[in-house]
Simulated assay, not measured.
Amino acid sequence: MFARLLLLGSLLFINLYACKGGYASCVAKVKDSHAIQNNSLSIPVSKTERLVYSRNIPNAKIIKQDPFLSLYLIEESKPFAYPFDINMRLQLGTAIVTDKKAYEGKFLHNQIGLNTLASYSETLVYPALVTSSCCSLEGVVTPRGIIQREYLNHFVTTKNNLYGDIGIRVKNEKGSVIVKASDPFMKNNPFLQGDCIVGFDGKKIDAASVLMCKILFSKVGSKHRVKVKRGSKLYTFTVMVQQRYGGGELSDTFLESRGLYFDAKLHLTKIGNAFQKYGLHIGDRLIQVDGVKVENEAALREYLQKTKHYKSLLFERNGFQFFVNIK
C-alpha cells in the first residue's frame, strides 16, 4: 500500500514539475516519446494511439486520416507512459518544442479554416510541436504553418472524417469577417463575394478563425442562421451544411465537389466519375476556362465564382493542347 502511494505521489510530482520547470521538461518529453521521427510528427495522445502529421502514408495501422491537413491517427506499437493531452483549457503561454530545444513565443494569427494555418512570433522550426509549459499540445508545426489545437482535437475525438461547408471562404479585414470567395456550384448558396458575416446562430462573429471552426465542425446536413451585412442592408440566411471537398493540402478551386483536383500549377491530381468520360488523364494541365487564361488556384477560383456556367476547358498534355467541352 505504501509503495503504491509513493508511486502515485511520484507521478503527481512529475506532472506538477512539468508545469513549473519551464519547457526543458517538454523537450525531454518530446525526445523520450519519439514524437519527432524521420522529418514527421508521431505524437502519443493516448496509451493506444499516436497522432501523426506526415505527407507520406505512415507504415502503421491507420485508424483514420484527414487528407486536408495530412493528419493520421495510428495504433500505438510501443505505448508511452505519459501521452500528450490536447489542451482545450485556458492558454497560459506556449513554445515551439523540438527534441533539442524550445522557442518560447505566442500565436500572432489564429488558423482560419483549412487554407490559412496559424502564424507564430518565433521562426517556425519543422517538424516541431507547440506546447504549454505543462507540455499539453497547443498545435503542430508544418511547412505551411501551425495546425492549432481545435483542429487536432476535432480530428482525434470525432468518429467521421468530414468537414462542413456552407460555400464561403473568409478573411479578416479591418475588424470584420469578409467573404473572399463564394462557391458557385453549391446549390442555393446565398452568399456573395464581399459580404460581411456578422452573426452565426445568434452569436456575434468578429474573427474569421472562429467562424470557420463553427462551419467546418458542424454536422453535415445541419441547418444554421447566418447574419450578413451587404452594403447598408442586413440579411439573415438559413443554410444547410454541405460536405467540404477541397482545402488545406488538397486544391480548393470549387471544382473539387465535381471531382477535379489540381496541384499548385493546375495539373490534375484526381479525376472523379463525372469527368471520366472526357478522356482526361492525371497530369493534364488546365490552361484556360472559356477562353480565359488561368495560372493558379486563386485565378481559377476567382473566375469560377463569377460564372458557374463554364462550357469549355483547355488542357495541355505533353505539349499538345485540347479542349474539353462540358455538356
Rank of each mutant, 00 (worst) to 15 (best):
Lys233Pro: 02
Ile63Asn: 06
Lys47Arg: 11
Leu41Cys: 07
Asn153Ile: 02
Gly175Lys: 02
Tyr151Trp: 11
Ser119Gln: 08
Asn15Gly: 07
Lys100Ala: 13
Tyr72Ile: 00
Ala18Gln: 15
Leu71Gln: 00
Glu122Arg: 14
Asn110Ala: 10
Leu73Gly: 02
Asp165Asn: 14
Ile146Leu: 14
Arg285Lys: 15
Thr158Ser: 12
Asn189Asp: 14
Lys203Cys: 06
Leu260Phe: 01
Ile86Trp: 00
Thr253Ala: 02
Leu124Gln: 03
Ile96Gln: 07
Arg317Val: 09
Gly194Ile: 02
Asn172Ile: 04
Gln288Lys: 15
Leu129Asn: 02
Val45Met: 04
Val324Gly: 00
Ala299Met: 10
Lys20Pro: 04
Ser70Thr: 06
Met186Lys: 15
Asn56Glu: 09
Ala3Ser: 14
Thr269Gly: 04
Leu250Phe: 07
Lys270Tyr: 14
Ile168Gln: 02
Lys180Val: 09
Ala128Ile: 03
Ile112Asp: 00
Lys308Gln: 14
Gln288Ala: 15
Pro83Leu: 08
Lys311Asn: 14
Gly221Gln: 05
Asn15Trp: 12
Leu5Phe: 11
Phe68Ser: 04
Gly167His: 01
Phe107Trp: 09
Lys78Gln: 15
Pro190Met: 02
Leu314Trp: 01
Asp195Met: 06
Lys29Gln: 07
Asn115Ala: 14
Met212Ala: 01
His34Cys: 10
Leu6Lys: 11
Tyr126Ser: 06
Ile178Arg: 04
Cys26Thr: 04
Lys308Leu: 04
Val220Ala: 08
Thr94Glu: 08
Ala102Gln: 10
Cys19Ser: 14
Lys229Ile: 13
Asp206Met: 12
Leu162Trp: 07
Lys47Tyr: 08
Gln91Ala: 11
Leu268Val: 05
Thr157Met: 08
Val27Asp: 13
Gln111Ala: 05
Lys47Leu: 15
Arg230Lys: 09
Asn110Thr: 08
Val140Arg: 00
Cys213Asn: 14
Lys61Ser: 12
Gln243His: 15
Gln242Pro: 05
Leu266His: 03
Val125Gln: 03
Gly231Phe: 05
Val239Ala: 07
Val239Gln: 10
Thr157Gln: 13
Asp183Thr: 06
Phe322Gly: 03
